[in-house]
Amino acid sequence: MLKCTSACAGCSDSLALRYVLKAAGPDTVLVVPACCTSVIQGIYPNTAFNVPVYNIAFGAAAACASGMSNAFRAAGKKTNVIVYAGDGGTLDIGIQAMSGAFERGTDFLYICYDNEAYGNTGMQRSGGTPLGAKTTTTPAGKTEAKKDIDAIIAAHDPPYQATAAAAYPQDLFKKVQKALTFRGPSFIHILAPCPPGWRYSTEKTVEMGKLAVKSGMWVLYEREYGKLTIGAQSKVAMKKPIPLEDYLAPQGRFKGIDPKTVEIIRQRLAKNLSKLAAEEAAP
């Protein structure tokens, strides 16, 4: 990635992308739907990336990548086709195309970097926005829970699926390299804290990602041919999590959140952790 990006200071979308591109190497094409990454590239005739980037309409990334992957394979090429899409482009408008591509066994890697809102258009709610978070379309806090896209992906039973966080770059790097060794569709879901969207100061970006993991709000894991392995960092967090409040309090988007909502978040968190622990323990 070159230096002409126009991301906000402290943006973890661009941070994560740096590691993704490093891990993927030069024989890679990035397919990007409308999102912050469309802006980060800079303005024509500049581009901030050193691999080809194909920009496509908001809801169409996975379908476009399907075509591209099939074309490369037909030509006998192994070129990595990587979708790099936001939570809106994945959980909301792009879910149909994504589901189709996974069901068809498309040979590609789909990466969703999740800043939990529509960053490009100035932070409106998305299906990825967590319960209680304020966005410009949920001024009193979102009343619905975050959509569990990982469970939806798991239902497609891809060979490889993982979660990652921009705050843990080595883990992310390894997962991208691994994902690209599988034939068929793989999925990586990256938590990407966003200073203007989450309303915290720019220098706290890495800390915010770590707090998410340490509190158990974000769990790092891999699922290989259906077999779940929880990452070491999250194992620690599951045994001895930091208080949920330590994660919520520094974020302006949760300011003034109703204690009842915090309790619901706490319960959902516990339920998710025990579900994952049970899945991992199962023979």
Partner: peptide, 19 residues
């Protein structure tokens, strides 16, 4: 649904409704 440069309409209506 939001899209530049219309988003302010959606946001304003969401705020009217929420308030």
């Amino acid at each position: 649904y939001p899209i530049t440069p219309q988003t302010e309409i959606v946001e304003q209506i969401a705020e009217f409704v929420s308030g």
